[in-house]
């Protein structure tokens, strides 16, 4: 599995760490308990394209990657 770091270019997955679902947005201070539970714990587990944040150890950039969870094909 290879991903493209916006700074370094294409690299093997060994150089990255996954930070999970990229679509979640941190609730505003004072948001409901439900909103926080949704943000901290609840995750979809799609079989197919999934937008994720990954951390490139080399340049310390967090990037967004869309990966097909069935094949590990990186789509974007």
């Amino acid at each position: 599995m290879r991903m493209t770091c916006p700074v370094c270019g294409e690299r093997g997955s060994e150089e990255f760490a996954c930070g999970g679902d990229a679509s979640r947005v941190r609730p505003e201070p004072g948001a409901s308990a439900e909103a926080w539970v949704e943000y901290v714990y609840m995750r979809a587990n799609p079989a197919g394209p999934h937008s994720e944040v990954w951390y490139h150890h080399g340049c310390r950039t967090w990037l967004t990657v869309t990966r097909d969870t069935r094949t590990n094909t990186v789509l974007v």
Binding site: A17, G19, R26, V53, Y55, R60, T61, W62
Partner: peptide, 12 residues
């Protein structure tokens, strides 16, 4: 901690 702080800085 470094990775977490970079996440806070870049993403949050």
């Amino acid at each position: 901690v470094l990775r977490h702080m970079e996440f806070c800085r870049q993403v949050l």
